[in-house]
Design a protein around this nucleic acid. Structure first.
Lengths: 189, 189
DNA sequence: CAAATAAATCAACACGGTGTTCAGTATTTT
DNA sequence: AAAATACTGAACACCGTGTTGATTTATTTG
């Protein structure tokens, strides 16, 4: 990643930017290599020197995002022993808010379901330990079910949030999520 | 829908079947008209006589699904005044189970996020009334937040369920969902 | 049943994006 | 400055698209 020719750094950067912009306008499927290169201002042949596909480019962006996501999440997971799982939500939402521009393209309208899914899958593995510690009476299967439900719920809230232009602060959103996670319908009473 | 030439009925049926099968294998974006027609055993020209696009065909299938979904849901919504919202889950899951083959292609791996989203949006409108009746102290915004979270959670459970080959009964799944909706983490205690 | 009507097939067409190649030009690195 | 490396521009065959017109096949109507 670091020891690249300056030229390829620029080229890749331009392509990533162009794709991020296009992904807000339309789904990945509707993006052609031609228009992407036009938008990025680079030659089409150059694109094929680095990537095989528009999907290939997307994948490389996602890998970068994933790395930065878990990087940002590391402190949260490290102090996990202090935090009850629902309390971690706040930190995670803050993390999403901080990387808003990155998330808009993936969690947003034309985002890649599969990518978000794999992030959740990896998060689950990391969170499982703290869940097991806090809820020793629950079976592993129960925890998995709960986690699936609850991460799906948080994703839905985030999508709504992003669609709505992120007007509320992440703290408000996280508090709602926490309360629902804590007490279910109790949230409405 | 009914007063069609027998030939066009057959043609459309073959196309819908072929698309359903292909959608399990790959995302809609990767499906060409050519291979679709080859799979369906009809002429490519004939396809264009009925649909403009692969997406156009998908849309028509989705409209049919949506109709049958809300048709199946009608009784649930009618007796809604009897059921507390979380209790309705069971019925909804049964409905999904009954239309498994249809759901596999849309809720499944390569499904259309946007379609599921619109189903949820419409469901929300229908459910809102019974929520307001059961939780008079909650603001409309609160209910929306709760509904967003909880429908996202149920969707996640369903996806997991479908991916896993629907080995459990819908009842078991629904009960987990209900309990989480009712009492949050209480599910794990 | 036969004539009229409607639908599906087949082949051909221009069009546009793809992925590759190669010679020429620009930029790094040593 | 020389050698190595990356980008450009143009050309290429390939493939799927969407359309058209002539032909064959099935359905409906009188």
């Amino acid at each position: 990643m670091e020891k690249m020719d300056h030229r390829v750094r620029i080229t890749k950067h331009l392509l990533r930017n162009a794709l991020s912009v296009l992904l807000i306008e339309k789904p990945i499927a509707a993006i052609t290599v031609k228009e992407l290169c036009l938008r990025a201002g680079i030659n089409r042949g150059t694109f094929y020197a680095h990537y095989t596909d528009v999907y290939d480019l997307l994948k490389s962006i996602q890998q970068e995002m994933e790395a930065s996501f878990f990087e940002a999440l590391r402190p949260v997971l490290d102090e996990a022993s202090q935090l009850t799982p629902p309390k971690m939500t706040k930190k995670i939402f803050e993390c999403i808010e901080a990387n808003a521009d990155l998330c808009r393209a993936t969690i947003g309208p034309h985002g890649d379901k599969e990518f978000a899914r794999s992030l959740i899958r990896r998060s689950k593995e990391l969170c499982m330990i703290s869940y097991l510690r806090f809820y020793p009476n629950a079976t592993e299967k129960q925890i998995e079910t709960y986690f699936t439900f609850v991460s799906g719920g948080c994703m839905a809230l985030m999508e709504r949030w992003i669609r709505g232009g992120m007007t509320e602060s992440s703290a408000v959103l996280a508090e709602s999520a926490e309360r629902i996670m804590e007490s279910g319908v109790g949230f409405l009473k």
